[in-house]
Design a protein around this nucleic acid. Structure first.
Length: 498
RNA sequence: GGCGCGGUCGCCAAGUGGUAAGGCCGAGCUCUGCAAAAGCUCUAUCGGCGGUUCGAUUCCGCCCCGCGCCUCCA
């Protein structure tokens, strides 16, 4: 079945365009609205990022890894970035650089693929200016009294198609009412004239006929898309909150400037709620990735938790659901290991690695249903359900002695492909070398006295002196460590903080 | 006020006009000295009231509750 995704403009499920496989130049163009880099992104931002990452992964699996071009912007000049720079009395670039790096580090920790291009607004001032000039020439934009430039909504009859704004009764707020020098309150800024009191040192020469200043928010996406992906793109995504006005305005700008359809497909992911309500610092439910890592949760569990709901539905994130995610991942891993797979995993390691990049015909085995559900409008909860069923099925086969090596290989490759490659949930299957290194790293961070206790206990256990062994286990527990026995050895883990 | 989304097991969360996936938690059991891991078993009638229907959690209406957007929030 083809890859289907809800389309916001038509409000229906639509197939995504499949690029011509025989034409190397024909790639699927995918743009997603990225972060504003003025502070650490919160997990709600990352829900959108992770959902988009899965879209990217599905596109590559479906069309081939070389058939997709993914662009995500970085908004590094706007009201908030400038305000933050003024507040800290530091140059704008310093602030945005810092938070860009943090965003990229967090994305990497969440196992998100790096977009092929990550353009910045400040790096595309020229492109934005020239686009504004075209819009002015065509009569879609006008100069305000203060030298700002506004887009004239009336000049674009289709305005409002995406958000159905014409059905809405716009609330007239102070911000919109006093908005400077617009002809109509609905017109939006393409270029904002420099205001010394608000803009600090941030300014560029403006479009012809306009004052110096800085670009409005919406134009950056239109300009960067035009430059990096062309006049018409295959897929444009973002969070629901961007539907209006941001995406509506992008459509207006790009359509009027280029005269062709802007995006063939629009997709919006819903927001994350925390403890049943919107996140805010005053409610104490505002989390960044670092906050959660400090609490002892793994980034992979965060990723899983963010993917555990349907992307077009609000997802309620709680620390309980994060705990559930942590257990779900370790459960999957343990179950796959348990069926005597571990040694084979190491044996086939190379093959698994190749699965991560191959674009040959894919066999999904028992994971076929999970894969289809994923392709069907990103139904992740249903897909995960099917994946768990598939794992149980493999276990059944194993327990009943029906899991031949060949069958196992197929199913395990499918599992690995589904979790690691499609969902981006790294099952972390270590090679022998990695395993050794992991254990030596662990011994470095384990206090010597703990290691000594563990050694003594292991020796006692080997000597079947269980009384001593139990006593030593109790001592380890009291010292805050837990000892996990295996057939051939043990590992030490610090007890989880409450 | 306008536009839109949602209320399903203790928690998270799919789904369907014919009596409800999955994960977590909990309980019991099996196995392995203990622990961990794993396996098996058990745990819901779908916000409320009407209507349509042979039959609704699933369609329609009303009500209650929650959430989002309404000019720069993913």
């Amino acid at each position: 079945m083809a890859l289907k995704l809800y389309e916001s403009l038509s409000r229906s499920l639509r197939e995504l365009r499949r690029p011509d496989p025989t034409n190397p130049a024909d790639v699927f163009t995918f743009y997603n609205c990225g972060p504003t880099v003025y502070a650490p992104a919160h997990i709600g931002n990352f829900r959108t990022a992770v959902v988009n990452d899965v879209i990217r992964r599905l596109l590559e699996l479906e069309f081939g890894p070389t058939k997709v071009k993914h662009v995500r912007n970085l908004t590094d000049v706007d009201d908030r970035t400038i305000a933050q720079a003024l507040k800290e009395k530091r140059p704008l670039a310093e602030i945005t650089q810092k938070w860009t790096e943090k965003y990229q580090a967090d994305s990497a920790a969440l196992n998100c693929l790096i977009p092929h291009v990550q353009p910045t607004a400040t790096g595309h001032i020229k492109e934005q200016v020239s686009m504004i000039e075209v819009l002015m020439e065509k009569g879609n934009a006008y100069r305000g009294a203060d030298g700002s430039v506004y887009f004239k909504i009336d000049s674009f009859p289709e305005y409002g198609a995406l958000s159905r704004i014409k059905d809405r009764e716009l609330k007239i707020t102070d911000a919109s009412a006093d908005s400077d020098h617009k002809d109509s309150v609905s017109d939006f800024a393409l270029w904002k004239a420099y205001k010394p009191s608000e803009d600090g040192e941030v300014k560029w020469p403006g479009p012809k006929g306009a004052a110096e200043g800085r670009p409005g928010w919406h134009i950056e996406c239109s300009a960067m898309i035009k430059k990096h992906l062309g006049d018409t793109i295959d897929l444009h995504t973002g969070g629901v909150d961007l539907l209006f006005p941001h995406h509506e305005n992008e459509i207006a700008q790009s359509n009027c400037c280029n005269g062709v359809t802007f995006a063939r497909h629009w997709y919006h992911s819903e927001h994350l709620l925390v403890d049943g309500t919107s996140m805010s610092k005053s409610k104490g439910n505002y989390y960044t990735l670092s906050d959660l890592v400090e609490k002892g949760y793994s980034p992979m569990a965060v990723r899983y938790a963010l993917l555990a709901g349907h992307p077009r539905k609000q997802l309620n994130f709680t620390l309980d659901s994060l705990h559930a995610a942590e257990k779900a991942i370790s459960g999957i891993r343990n179950r796959l290991y348990e069926m005597g797979v571990y040694g084979n995993v190491l044996f086939f390691r190379q093959e698994f690695e190749s699965v991560l990049t191959a674009d040959d015909d894919l066999e999904w085995g028992l994971f076929a249903e999970a894969w289809e559900l994923l392709k069907s409008d990103l139904n992740m909860p249903a897909a995960l359900g099917a994946a768990f069923s598939a794992i149980s099925h493999i276990t059944d086969l194993d327990l009943s002695g029906k899991l031949t090596t060949e069958r196992w290989r197929l199913e395990f490759l499918s599992a690995y492909r589904f979790f690691n490659r499609a969902l981006g949930i790294d099952l972390q299957l270590p090679t022998v070398e990695e395993k050794k290194r992991l254990e030596s790293d662990q011994s470095k961070t384990t206090p010597d006295e703990i290691t000594a206790l563990a050694e003594q206990r292991w020796a006692a256990k080997q000597a079947k002196d269980f009384a001593t062994a139990d006593k030593l286990r109790a001592e380890l527990t009291a010292a805050g460590w837990t000892m996990l026995d295996r057939k051939d050895g043990y590992s030490l883990e610090p007890l989880k903080k409450a």
